[in-house]
């Protein structure tokens, strides 16, 4: 953009005509301004007057001057102190957050993210703790419904004897967190039926209880289950 000339005439044009001007190219002018501060610091270094603090103060002083903001060195020192205090405060805050004894703090790439998305987090009720896991009963020659009925009968009776949190049927055979595991089967041999039950201590793998109950017919299975339940309730503590 052309700048307005003075009212007295075009002095620049006059100097140019009589070769009294030496215009500096715009690129050189930019370079000149950019090198003003660094050169001053080099001069101080060469004459042994430079220090770290002086360098920071001068860097701020010439940086502001480059953008047309002229301040005194006293103000430059104040600006430096303020910047240093904020920088140290920021570093201290970052350090304290990094070493905060809060396991819920999530650190990702150095940025502490303590937000918790309550909507997306699945709410899981606390899982009840059972002592005895009853696995689905097996058996040859016996209808699956009979096996399941025997298993549920034993589970129900144990609940009545030892409380609802004593045992549970584990359809997926997951015994995690449980102390004992019950396996069983209902077998048919001729007209007679047999109920086999075994309880194992999961920590020691030792057999805690084992029983073989005989039933003359299908109608005798409930009584056999009752006896097994009583035996387990007494032996398993």
């Amino acid at each position: 953009m052309m700048e307005k000339q003075g009212p007295q005439g075009n002095m620049k044009e006059l100097l140019h005509k009589y070769r009294l001007d030496h215009p500096v190219a715009p690129d050189s002018q930019k370079r000149m301004m950019a090198h003003m501060g660094p050169m001053y610091r080099r001069i101080l270094k060469r004459t042994g007057r430079h220090s770290l603090i002086t360098g920071i103060v001068l860097w701020i002083y010439f940086l502001l001057r480059r953008y047309g903001i002229v301040i005194t060195t006293g103000k430059a020192i104040i600006v430096t102190i303020v910047l240093l205090v904020f920088s140290l405060g920021g570093i201290l805050a970052f350090f304290m957050l990094q070493h905060r004894p809060d396991s819920a703090v999530n650190r990702k790439g150095g940025v502490v993210d303590i937000r918790v998305d309550l909507d997306s987090a699945p709410v899981q009720p606390p899982r009840p703790v059972y002592a005895l896991a009853i696995e689905p009963f097996t058996g040859e020659g016996v209808d699956r419904g009979v096996r399941t009925a025997a298993m549920k009968a034993i589970a129900g009776q144990l609940g009545a004897l030892r409380g609802g949190s004593f045992s549970t049927i584990v359809w997926n055979r997951n015994t995690e967190g449980m102390k004992y595991r019950m396996t069983g089967s209902v077998e048919k041999s001729g007209d007679e039926m047999f109920l086999f039950v075994k309880v194992v201590d999961l920590r020691t793998s030792s057999i805690v209880y084992v029983a073989k109950e005989k039933a003359d017919s299908l109608d005798g299975i409930p009584d056999a289950c009752r006896r097994v339940s009583q035996g387990v309730a007494e032996r398993v503590r």
């Binding site: 100097l15 001007d21 030496h22 002018q29 301004m33 047309g68």
Partner: peptide
């Protein structure tokens, strides 16, 4: 700065602490 070396008013002012 302005007449001989061709600086703008703004650039010359920066060196001398003027607007």
């Amino acid at each position: 700065l302005i007449a001989v070396y061709g600086f703008s008013y703004k650039e010359a002012g920066k060196y001398l602490g003027m607007t």
